[in-house]
């Protein structure tokens, strides 16, 4: 019987499918955070950006009927929040970590305030590619449904890697992040490079929010983001500030997040909250293993955390 094969194939396939679906937001936020941190500032407020992005994407998709306009709206919302963070966190005497915490509160406030009206209605979703259409095995078909947004994200990672490595602007960002005083001596405007890096990073994370509300799970609710925006910070540390490694890290975290639901689908429901919390536990363990009190991490931008 097909049901018996599904039993032992279902769990790994559900994890693969969940990985493909769940890693898209991780990918976008971690790339956004990577760009931000490369310029020497931390944006802890991406959780708020993610929520605002998810809400505005869903709302605009519902109101206009076009999910791609929704994605664009999410990006614009991200730009606005990013601009606040970029401006405020660069004022003298203001800690970027503190601004991030404030932006979590503010961003989620904005998202919940305007999102109340959109909890019930169903908004048009983004189209998906059915890479599993050749198979007549339903678990495989549903596992291989891939969003174009995920593909865009996968494309951005190597582009960003190339950007940092081989372009003049990439060099500016790295210079500002490693040694602002040297960059200033080169005649680079530290403020504007950071401003652009933070706002564009915030733009990317808001697109990650659109992945949540227009692709998977494809609804808008107040607890739609389960801390992906916060985990982005840890993910970037894990990826050693390399965009390509952000891609692998995002897939790994998406996979960790998929374990809980996959086990639930075959009836393993005990400790489901702990399984659902596995990305956080996982992040913490990774940070404990990789951090050291004696040195800063290899690859870490020099000005990160110095408020310089």
């Amino acid at each position: 019987m097909a049901a018996e094969t599904a039993d032992w194939l279902g769990v790994p396939l559900a994890i693969i499918g969940g990985t493909l679906r769940g890693s898209a937001p991780f990918l976008f936020v971690s790339l956004g955070e990577c760009l931000t941190e490369k310029s020497g500032k931390i944006n802890l407020g991406l959780e708020g950006t993610l929520l605002t992005g998810a809400m505005s994407a869903y709302a605009v998709s519902y109101l206009t009927g076009s999910p791609w306009l929704g994605v664009l709206a999410a990006g614009v919302a991200g730009l606005c929040l990013g601009a606040i963070h970029a401006w405020l966190s660069q004022r003298s005497g203001v800690s970027d970590v503190a601004v991030g915490i404030a932006m979590i509160v503010f961003g989620s406030g904005i998202a919940f305030f305007f999102g109340k009206a959109f909890i019930q209605p169903q908004a048009p979703q983004l189209p998906i590619f059915e890479f599993g259409a050749w198979s007549n095995y339903p678990p495989l078909q549903s596992a291989l449904q891939v969003s174009p947004l995920l593909l865009i994200g996968i494309a951005i990672a190597p582009i960003m890697q190339w950007f940092f490595k081989s372009t003049r602007w990439g060099l500016y960002v790295r210079a500002v992040g490693d040694s602002p005083s040297a960059a200033r001596a080169m005649g680079i405007s530290v403020f504007w490079v950071r401003f652009l890096a933070i706002t564009i990073g915030s733009f990317l994370s808001a697109i990650g929010g659109a992945c949540l509300s227009l692709y998977y799970p494809g609804i808008w609710s107040e607890n739609i983001s389960s801390g992906q925006g916060l985990m982005a910070v840890a993910l970037v540390i894990f990826a050693r500030w390399q965009p390509m490694q952000c891609l692998w890290a995002a897939l790994l975290f998406g996979g960790a997040q998929a374990i809980g639901p996959a086990l639930q689908s075959v009836g393993v429901t005990s400790f489901r909250y702990l399984f659902n919390a596995s990305p956080y536990i996982f992040t913490l363990i990774i940070m404990i293993i990789t951090c050291s009190p004696k040195r800063t991490l290899a690859g870490s931008p020099g000005a990160l955390g110095t408020n310089e």
Binding site: L44, L230, A234, A277, I288, C291, P293, G305
Partner: peptide, 27 residues
Amino acid sequence: ALKYYRGVNETISSLLMNYIAIAILNT
């Protein structure tokens, strides 16, 4: 302890531990 002995950023670890605590409560 994580901060002092392992150099783990205290802001991020405490934030993650919020979620872990809530998961423990729910469990």
